[in-house]
């Protein structure tokens, strides 16, 4: 690996100052599970790593009336070990459970997953589905941006030099809502999503009609996508095959995947439709307060 410097600031302000000072040649280090690998293979060569994983603000994991706050450096195992996440933000728990193996989950964070900005990131579709908002701190103050607007291309995002993702905030969950994430991978674990789908649905009190839905898609375009039209097509519709099929078709519509070693373009488009339906069905079951029959990875 190339030589670099390592800094371990103790406040967010200090971290931002360091980030700004190195003007683009510094990288924040949280769990490092993507960053260290990319540095080892030479894809990234920052001069300085700024270790942000011990900063308090990036380790917040709490729920209040406004919703859920997940610090950008909170590792996956804490997220899926959290009661609120497990009961209300299940798509996020589903994602965090299948990012790498257990060892990776000890270190990897959703902030890192987002900042790495891979098209196939497993937590991003869930964050989109759950309406996540990125809280970004920078030299000129804080700003917020929806998760679906964060990534701008493979490995690229809206962060300006000196800016740091501090947390992702999720709105409080309405009644009768449920969410789920799953992906298609050739193995059952330790794999990159060929297609990943996160969805959140809110049903009416009868549990038979959609009030609203949000769907996030991974690995089918240069960035994770918010399938807005697909989600909106469900609002006010009854829960049935027809409405699900319509949403799946709308999701397939926006898929523009590539062919690579993980799957062909045609395969990915087909699977997008299949998974959108399956994930919606699971989210519906959860919205009704029932358990889904789901074998991780299958």
């Amino acid at each position: 690996m190339h030589a670099f410097d390592y800094q371990s600031p103790s406040t967010v302000a200090e971290a931002i100052e360091l980030m700004a000072k190195h003007n683009g040649s510094a990288r924040p280090l949280a769990g490092g599970t993507d960053l260290i690998d990319q540095m080892r293979v030479g894809r990234l060569a920052p001069d300085v790593l700024i270790d942000v994983k011990k900063l308090d603000e990036l380790n917040v994991l709490s729920a209040d009336a406004a919703g859920l706050h997940v610090g950008a450096a909170v590792p996956c195992y804490r997220i899926y070990g959290d009661e609120t996440v497990n009961s209300q933000y299940t798509a996020l728990a589903d994602s965090c459970h299948i990012i790498g193996g257990i060892q990776i989950q000890s270190r990897a964070s959703i902030g890192g997953n987002l900042c790495n900005s891979g098209p196939a990131a497993d937590s991003t579709p869930s964050m989109i589905a759950l309406g996540g908002v990125c809280v970004i701190a920078g030299p000129s103050g804080s700003r917020e941006i929806a998760v679906e607007s964060f990534c701008t291309g493979p490995g690229k995002n809206v962060l300006e030099p000196g800016e740091l993702l501090v947390e992702v905030r999720f709105p409080a969950r309405p009644a009768n809502s449920g969410s789920h994430y799953r992906r298609m991978i050739p193995r059952n674990e330790m794999d990159i999503a060929v297609v990943g789908v996160g969805a959140s649905v809110t049903l009416d009190d009868s549990g038979q009609n959609f009030v609203s839905a949000r769907i996030g898609l991974g690995a089918i375009a240069a960035t994770p996508l918010f399938a807005e039209a697909a989600g909106e097509s469900l609002a006010g519709q009854p829960v049935n095959d027809e409405s699900l099929e319509k949403a799946a078709a709308a999701a397939r519509e926006i898929a523009s995947p590539i062919t690579d070693m993980r799957g062909t373009r045609e395969y990915r488009i087909h699977v997008t439709g299949v998974l959108v339906k399956r994930v919606l069905q699971a989210a519906i079951v959860r919205a009704r307060g029932e358990q889904i029959d789901y074998c991780r990875g299958h």
Partner: peptide
């Protein structure tokens, strides 16, 4: 071995070469 047209193996890591895990 997944090769591109230039003859580069594009899956030369355990992640993408995919030998069975115990969960498979």
């Amino acid at each position: 071995y997944w090769y591109d047209e230039q003859g580069e193996m594009r899956n030369s890591t355990y992640l993408d070469y995919r030998i069975p895990t115990c969960y498979d």
